[in-house]
Every structure is written in structure tokens, then in C-alpha cells.
């Protein structure tokens, strides 16, 4: 089963999506609308977003592309809900920068609280998986708490969704094809099998430090194949058997409007 949050006919709804794409609301109402309909506004699928943990340099090939040694332990940074936006929404490119790239990532959504969780038990704590695009602005990197908040904590730069797939429906989260297209052209073509630290490892690692809670998310990093994105571009991040996440890039002025 898949789970999402949408706005449809003016109502904000928690929905389940069956294998044959039938949409049922939490109240049991069947919605007569197709998943690709423009009548659906997709919200972030995590209803009460908690702490967002994101990994850097977590694919062997991405690590070599960026000329870093693969890390000996996870490189984890934190983001908050201000960065989140849904499927088919917009993300902005700041003015006067040279390099902003997408990062297509598998996301594990935490479903129950735990501390000191063993690797072999870790998936019991995962409600499901979704896809995110953890945009980065390389111009803003500084060597203090790198990747610093200016690079990774900006509004709208973590699209996520459209839905969460139940953990039990994914036999092996580390055997999934991962692709990104920009304006229909494939720019990233990888697999979650190249992940350095997998979800159970990361859950064991983080929960040795702190309690994980429902609504927390773990964004697991991206493989090689990152390219610059410009306003007007349509970026689609896809992970096999999970979902495809579409984002349209806009300028900083278009995004902020009156607040620009």
C-alpha cells in the first residue's frame, strides 16, 4: 500500500493508494480521480515532519566524483520542515550562483520511537520509503559544519513524495534503480545497491546517539550524475518501485514574490 497527503476539491486528505491506483481517503471514501490528474495537489507525504537526517557522500561513485575519500562513518546533517515541498511543486534557484544540483535520494520514514536500535531490528522502525530531491547550492559551501545550513536548509529545496510505500512492500531497498531526468533527459542513472551505509546501518548509528521518533526522516544520499539546474527546468527523481518526484525550478524572485 502507498500513503499520501493531497488537496482535492478544496479538501486536505490523507489517502491510501492501492496496487491498481485506486485512491481511498482515511474516512473510506473512494476518490474518482487518476493519480496523474492536475486536480490533485500533492503535499509532503509525512503528515507531521520531525527531524530530517540527510547523508552526504553515501554512494561510492558519488564520493569519487567529488574527489573525497569515502567516509568511515556516516556524514549526517540535519534539516527541518521549512525545506520540504511536495510532488509537482516548485523549488527555487537563488540569484547569482553558479552551481545548484539535485540529489535524488531514497528516504526512510521513521514509524515508531526507538533508541539503541539493532541493525537487524531497524526496519521494524521504518514506516515506509519515499523519494526526495535534496538540492544543494555548491557556491555556498564553507568548511564549517559542512554541508552548512546555507547550502542545505533553504526553503523549498527538499521536495519529497508523492507517496510513502509500506516497508513490507519493498523486498530489498538496496536493489532499486535510481534515475533523474532534467527536461526529459536522463542525467543520473544509478542504483541504491551502491549505497555505502544502508538504512539499517544508519538507524543503528543514529539511535546510538539519540532517540528516533515517528515522522523523522532519513535521506540516504545520492549517486553520481549531478548537474546544474536552472529556472524553468523540470527535474524528475525516480526510484524503482517507490515513486517519481517531479519538481519545477523557478527563480528566487518568482518563488518569494512579494517577499523578494
Amino acid at each position: 500500500m502507498r500513503h499520501a497527503r493531497i488537496i482535492f476539491e478544496g479538501r486536505e486528505l490523507d489517502i491510501d493508494i492501492s496496487a491498481d491506483d485506486r485512491i481511498t481517503t482515511a474516512e473510506g471514501e473512494v476518490l474518482n480521480v487518476a493519480l496523474d490528474s492536475d486536480q490533485i495537489t500533492w503535499l509532503v507525504p509525512v503528515k507531521e515532519p520531525g527531524t530530517i537526517f540527510a547523508l552526504g557522500i553515501n554512494y561510492a561513485d558519488h564520493a569519487s566524483e567529488l574527489a573525497f575519500e569515502p567516509p568511515k562513518e556516516p556524514l549526517v546533517f540535519i534539516k527541518h520542515a521549512n525545506t520540504l515541498t511536495g510532488h509537482k511543486q516548485v523549488s527555487y534557484r537563488p540569484d547569482n550562483i553558479d552551481y545548484q544540483h539535485y540529489e535524488c535520494e531514497l528516504v526512510a520514514v521513521i514509524g515508531k520511537s526507538g533508541k539503541n536500535i539493532k541493525r537487524e531490528d531497524a526496519l521494524d522502525y521504518v514506516a515506509g520509503y519515499t523519494v526526495c530531491n535534496d538540492f544543494a547550492i555548491r557556491d555556498y559551501l564553507e568548511n564549517y559544519y559542512r554541508p552548512n545550513l546555507r547550502v542545505k536548509s533553504r526553503d523549498s529545496l527538499l521536495p519529497m513524495g508523492p507517496w510513502i510505500v509500506d516497508t513490507a512492500d519493498i523486498a530489498d531497498a538496496n536493489a532499486l534503480k535510481l534515475t533523474t531526468t532534467v527536461n526529459g533527459k536522463v542525467t543520473q542513472d544509478g542504483s541504491t545497491k551502491d549505497m555505502i551505509f544502508n538504512v539499517p546501518f544508519i538507524i543503528e548509528y543514529l539511535s546510538k546517539i539519540m532517540t528516533l521518533n515517528p515522522g523523522d526522516m532519513i535521506c540516504t544520499g545520492t549517486p553520481h550524475g549531478i548537474v546544474d539546474c536552472q529556472p524553468g527546468d523540470t527535474v524528475v527523481c525516480s526510484i524503482e518501485d517507490i515513486c517519481s518526484l517531479e519538481t519545477r525550478m523557478v527563480s528566487e524572485q518568482e518563488y518569494y514574490g512579494d517577499k523578494y
Partner: peptide
């Protein structure tokens, strides 16, 4: 130089 103290803290 910014960092977060997340909600569990």
C-alpha cells in the same frame, strides 16, 4: 556558523 539542536534535544 549554524547548527540545529533537533527536537529530541
Amino acid at each position: 556558523v549554524l547548527y540545529y539542536k533537533p527536537r529530541n534535544t
